[in-house]
Nucleic acid binder design. Structure first.
Lengths: 356, 356
DNA sequence: GTGAAAGCGCTAACAA
DNA sequence: TTGTTAGCGCTTTCAC
């Protein structure tokens, strides 16, 4: 080990003191030496709530400023067993709705004194390696807005790493979750469709392994059944714009009665669907065809679309997720909690009275 | 310090050995003890390229697997002076084009054995605190796709933290940059406009402090001048959809001849502009009004828009940024480099012969 | 309130 | 090839 400036402060063995050579980062020892105090005093100055005299604090801070000293968070993490790092797992592709949540989560984490270690997860193997990476980096917690198997979750549990799920959860396993339940709003939206004389609907769903998709499909079918609206066609997309467009084509090619309304599991597909209806099939939306969907992403309200959709309160959900993860980091044995937010209907302009 | 299982392996002072109590994370000492080897042997097994016998490796790996041991990256970072962390600075709001780059960068970093520590930066003060945070966490490097003052950059330089700028740089200071220069493509696009008989253009620019904006404005004016197209109106937006719509209104209210083409500094504003033209002003695009812009974000090609725009090769740029940052981490004294990518015209369908 | 000393879990120089 | 040893920069008892 080349340059070891310290270990025991005074008596100063001048021959061994490395005088902050160029480029070397100042350590608490350097500050202590300059201020003429012990290293532990320096440490205390940078720990909020330590008992320290004003005079001491002043001296130390002056020296610290002079040396541009900032405590080394890595070293601190090593001893406190707290990295202040939170792994944030998102799936990069699909769904342009996650960026909004991601940025909000990052900001909130920052405000809570935590840093976001970002991981993109596209599939199960990714999740596997990401979990190992996060573990190696001693993350204090995980916020997962991406796919994860139950085994992977249990591994994290076993390792006592708190996890908060964002818009997904395991029904048969206790876990901490922030979630949006749009069922009430869907109910009223579907009732509205019934009033508008819609009798036949088509459904464009998302990836079957995706929980948000499954839930939305389930509640849509329930609501439609209750309102006496029949599903005449159903097709599966992958949440993307293109798959929404393709979905409409597939519906048109299916036998059975023409639907008067298309229900898309997310906005992105609804936009694809709407564009396809207008520019390829020459249909007017909403006059010839109504469309509703879920998410309420920003672009769904651009005037080309003005989707009638059910918005998730992304901001509050992100805030809640961060609150929950920092609570769980502080109190690991705390019981699980599920925070469910309601959706909100954005009236938009993509529904109208059914063509008869 | 409650549980200290080690310091010196054999002779095993059984009274002091803590037998991996529940929940305690296995350390290299635990593995060493179980495998009956020295702790440093364990360390070597996890360092690629260490000289170690097959037999030893096998024994150690078996024990490691049994204890689910993974090296502690934080502790490793403390001694190697390499955190393997790279700060990624993005500006959250505005511009939905950054998410694409962000996810790509994260993936590439991951492939290079580096982790992305994500920071959102909205203004100069944010940048200030973010830089301090990054410094505390001993990041090996910074990829900045957000605002940063020259002083802030110099601070990072002084601290010997390599920085790669994404789509921005300081002209009067050496720095490492990945950049997209769309001027050639713009030249040909403007020539095309001239052929289409456009004589009067309006410009919707972005925030003046933004470099990409300034560059695009400059080269647009140059190109227009060379092609003999006059700028009859100019207005400033903030890169957002809404400001694009407002920009068009502002242009319409300005005195002077009606422009036949609007040039927007990014796609998002162009989309707002197009929607405003169509749905509020009742204009047909491109028949009544042509629009061109910059970026080539995914949604610019949705059939509602089909913008004629100049795409940035985000994927290659992200890849380059990561390559450059890991090079600079490895070789800090290496000279600066600027990698400039060309744009690519997406023909789209938002330009036509000028109305006369 | 302050300082001395003991590590957090790891790597790496050195010796064997 | 393997083990011993000395720290990386910090926090935290424990005396004083």
């Amino acid at each position: 080990m080349a340059n070891n400036p310290h270990k025991k402060n005074p008596p100063e063995d001048e021959s061994k003191v490395i005088p902050l050579i160029k480029g070397r980062r100042a350590t608490s020892y350097d500050v202590a030496r300059l201020a003429g105090v012990s290293q532990s005093a320096v440490s205390r100055c940078f720990k909020p709530g330590s008992s320290i005299s004003g005079k001491m604090r002043e001296r130390v801070m002056k020296a610290a400023k002079e040396l541009e000293y900032q405590p080394n968070a890595i070293a601190r993490g090593l001893i406190t067993q707290r990295s202040n790092l939170v792994a944030v797992l998102v799936s990069g592709r699909l769904n342009l709705y996650y960026p909004e949540a991601l940025f909000k989560i990052t900001e909130e984490l920052s405000a809570a004194g935590l840093r976001a270690l970002l991981f993109t997860v596209e599939n199960e193997e990714d999740a596997e390696t990401v979990i190992e990476q996060a573990w190696q980096f001693q993350v204090d917690g995980v916020i997962s807005a991406s796919h994860m198997t139950q085994e992977q979750y249990q591994l994290l549990e076993k390792r006592k790493i708190p996890v908060v799920f964002f818009n997904r959860y395991f029904a048969d396993h206790p876990n901490t979750v922030v979630y949006c339940d749009p069922s009430e709003q869907l109910e009223s939206l579907v009732a509205q469709l019934a009033e508008l004389r819609h009798k036949k609907a088509a459904l464009i769903s998302g990836p079957v392994e995706n929980m948000v998709n499954r839930e939305r499909v389930r509640m849509t079918k329930d609501a439609l059944a209750r309102s006496g609206i029949q599903i005449t066609a159903e097709t599966q997309g992958d949440f993307s714009y293109e798959s929404g467009a393709a979905g409409l084509q597939s519906i048109k090619q299916q036998d059975g009665d023409e639907p008067t309304v298309i229900i898309c599991v997310n906005d992105m597909m609804a936009m694809g669907c709407m564009d396809e209806a207008r520019s390829v099939l020459g249909l007017k939306v909403p006059e010839d065809l109504s469309i509703i969907s879920f998410d309420g992403i920003g672009m769904s309200q651009f005037s080309s679309y003005e989707l009638t959709t059910i918005r998730q309160p992304i901001g509050r959900m992100s805030e809640a997720a961060v609150r929950m993860i920092s609570d769980r980091v502080e109190h690991p044995e705390q019981s699980h909690e599920k925070r469910v937010f309601e959706g909100a209907v954005i009236p938009g302009g993509s529904i109208a009275r059914a063509r008869t």
